[in-house]
């Protein structure tokens, strides 16, 4: 069957068997592999996507059922390539993940919570992520991440990430710096250090 789905704001078409889940369609037909299969029976939450803004199991919906909804996957959350959303950045800040497998679903659940509640209590957070099983973290740093993201969102008018750019990729241009002799490239960014301020 032909289906046209609105994914991350874009209309996408695929020809699928009725038995193909939304999860498999996102992954195989649209190559959006950030949604993961964990149990395929609706318990673990690794496949969580947003359907009309609400966290839902992509393994518990067939692609043929999904037309007409706004589907958001983890790939739709980053504002630009290499740039993270507040919630994504908060997960990096507190190390609210380890292996990263449950992380996209977890972040989407957290994102949806913060969309309608920017001052969640610990209980609100625990409830909102209770459908996402994480085997690595024991949830402690995930709860911290959501609390931290909420705090940042409440101060949303203040410039985000004032302490500097991203931590992973060098923001300096190696070619421009390669000629530097005194100090050298490797010291140039030595003051940029991650860690919560």
């Amino acid at each position: 069957m032909k289906v046209t789905l609105k994914v991350n704001g874009r209309l996408r078409t695929a020809d699928v068997e009725p038995r193909k889940t939304l999860l498999d369609t996102l992954r195989e037909d649209f190559l959006l592999t950030g949604s993961h299969a964990g149990c395929e029976h609706g318990v673990c939450g690794a496949c969580t996507v947003l359907i009309d803004g609400e966290p839902s199991r992509a393994c518990l919906m067939f692609a043929v059922q999904a037309d007409g909804y706004e589907i958001t996957t983890i790939e739709g959350l980053a504002p630009a390539p290499g740039e993270l959303s507040v919630v994504q950045d908060a997960f990096c800040e507190t190390h609210g993940l380890q292996c990263g497998y449950c992380t996209p679903g977890m972040i989407l659940s957290a994102h949806a919570l913060l969309e309608h509640n920017d001052a969640p209590t610990r209980e609100d957070i625990v409830e909102a992520i209770s459908g996402n099983i994480c085997r690595c973290t024991g949830y402690g740093q995930i709860v911290e991440a959501v609390e931290f993201a909420a705090e940042r969102l409440r101060k949303t008018n203040a410039p985000r990430n004032v302490t500097g750019g991203s931590d992973d990729e060098p923001s300096i241009d190696p070619a421009a710096e390669a000629g530097a002799r005194e100090g050298g490239v490797l010291e140039a960014a030595a003051t940029r250090q991650g860690g919560r301020q």
């Binding site: 966290p55 518990l60 659940s109 209770s130």
Partner: peptide, 12 residues
């Protein structure tokens, strides 16, 4: 209702 499944399953 809060005991029915978990939030994502109640959404659908």
């Amino acid at each position: 209702l809060p005991y029915v499944g978990h939030p994502p399953t109640r959404n659908r």
